[in-house]
Amino acid sequence: MNLTLHIWRQENTTAEGRFSTYRVEEISPDMSFLEMLDVLNERLINKGEVPVEFEHDCREGICGTCSLMINGVPHGPEKGTTTCQLHMRKFKDGDEITIEPWRAKAFPVLKDLVVDRSAFDRIIQKGGYISANTGNAPDGNAIPIPKPDSDWAFEAAACIGCGACVAACKNASASLFVAAKVTHLGLLPQGQPERYLRVTAMVEQMDQEGFGSCTNTYDCEGACPKQISVRNIARMNRDYLKAKIMGN
């Protein structure tokens, strides 16, 4: 496959960025999207040019590190898939592909396609944990949890914190991320004692980071590589309102 790539290049956070166009030739349809970028970078290095910076780690779709806006859709055209698991067979020979970083005030561009997602870490630091020492893993059936609750908690826990929800949202809102984290702990018995403190602290940190608000357009759910439901946002709203009325 021969492709034309329009890639956002930006020297550092304060520098002004611009799009650069590159031609990549003889790309195998079996390559992953990141492997295609590896090929481009090898060619750039061989020519003595600066390679395109992008983030990646596990390349198995479970770490949440890769983060590319591909033709206007976070993680590209395949539903429920991270960029690293997207294959070039989803594109056609001769395609033009626009690759941009996540765009949000709370996610400043560090270089090229790499953004700083520490805002998510700071939200987690506010309450995305259980502070009681729960000891060793308990016996499987020692703590009874209704099946629908454990399934829902598991679905929410699948969030890999990639930030595709923020990238897709027209308001750059982090509601789906925060809601998933709040729900995954708030549905389980171990998460109950800090349930309302957690939702208040995490939501307030989210607001402080400068993310936008949720306007229920649901593009976050459509973009999420783990297909996490906006149902979690409704639950977060409910818990947050309860916390405010009852004083945590």
């Binding site: 799009f19 806006m69 941009e100 459509g222």
Partner: peptide, 29 residues
């Protein structure tokens, strides 16, 4: 208030941005 906050939350716009599942009416409130 929310509109101005939401505009501030994305100071640099995308060159290409496609709606995924959102309806036009939800984006036009």
């Amino acid at each position: 208030l929310l509109l101005s906050r939401n505009k501030e939350a994305r100071p640099v716009q995308y060159k290409a941005k496609k709606p995924i599942v959102s309806t036009p009416q939800s984006r036009m409130m």
